[in-house]
Computed example of a mutant assay.
Amino acid sequence: MSATLIQVTPFVLCADLERQIGFYRDILGFTLGFQAENYAFLRRDGAAVRLLECPPRPDGTPLGHEHSFYIDVEDLDGLFQQLKPQLDQLPPERVRAPFDQPYGQREFHVLDEDGALVFFGAAIAG
C-alpha cells in the first residue's frame, strides 16, 4: 500500500501567540484546536495553521515578512463577504479585495499580525 498525502499545514511564525491566535480565530474564523506555551493549532474546514511564537529577529524585520501561503476555497466572493465585517477592522493596507488573476484564479489577500501574506483563491469558472 502506498502512502497518501492528505494536507499541508503551514507553520506561521509569530511574535505574540495570543495576538496571532486572535487574528486567525476572530478575523479569519479559524477554531483553536490546541494550545501550548509557544504553539497553537487552528483549523477551519479543511484548512489548518500551526502558530509558533518565536523571539523577534535581531534586525526588527517582522517574523512573517517572507512567508505566505495559499488557501483554496469554494465561493471566494461569499467567503470575502462573510469575513468583511472582521476584515474592515484591519488597516486597509492589510486587505486586498477579490480580484481576478491572469492565471485563472480569483483571489483576495490578507496580511496577518506578523506580516505573513495569506492568499485565498478559487478557480475562475468558465
Rank of each mutant, 00 (worst) to 15 (best):
P56V: 06
P56Y: 04
V49A: 04
P10W: 08
G115T: 08
T9F: 02
L28C: 11
P58G: 06
Y39K: 10
G104Y: 05
R19Q: 14
V8K: 07
L111K: 08
F80W: 04
E113Y: 00
L111W: 09
F119P: 00
E93K: 14
V110E: 03
Q101S: 15
G29K: 03
D45S: 04
R106F: 04
L32M: 13
H109K: 05
Q20N: 11
P98F: 01
D100G: 11
P55T: 11
T4K: 13
D45T: 10
F108I: 05
E113W: 01
L90S: 10
T9G: 04
C14K: 06
L87E: 11
H67R: 08
A116C: 12
T4V: 14
L13K: 08
Q81S: 11
T4L: 12
L51S: 04
H65D: 11
S68P: 03
D112I: 08
D59S: 10
L52G: 02
A122R: 02
G22E: 08
L83F: 06
P102A: 12
I27N: 03
L63K: 09
G126E: 11
D77E: 12
V8H: 09
G104I: 07
D112R: 02
R57M: 13
E37K: 11
H109I: 06
A47Q: 01
E93L: 12
D100N: 13
L13S: 11
G78K: 01
V8L: 15
M1G: 15
A47W: 05
C54V: 13
E113G: 00
L90E: 05
F41T: 03
L111Y: 10
T4S: 14
F99S: 14
F30G: 04
I27G: 01
A123F: 00
A47M: 02
T61E: 06
Q20I: 00
L63F: 10
I71L: 15
E53Q: 15
E93D: 15
A47E: 10
R44K: 08
V110A: 03
P55R: 04
Q82G: 01
P56S: 09
L83Y: 13
P56G: 14
D114N: 13
P91F: 11
G115I: 01
C14T: 15
L111N: 07
F99A: 10
D75I: 00
P10M: 08
D72T: 05
F108E: 07
F34D: 07
L42I: 04
G60F: 05
D112F: 04
A48D: 02
S68H: 09
Y24F: 15
Q105M: 15
Y103C: 15
D112Q: 07
G121P: 02
F99G: 10
V12A: 06
Q81I: 03
E18T: 06
G46E: 07
H109Y: 15
P102G: 13
P85Y: 09
E93C: 12
H67C: 14
P98M: 12
T4G: 06
G78S: 11
F120D: 02
V95L: 14
Q35P: 03
Q20S: 15
F120G: 02
F11D: 14
P10E: 13
L90C: 12
A40W: 00
F99Q: 12
H65L: 06
E113M: 13
R43S: 05
Y70P: 09
A47N: 04
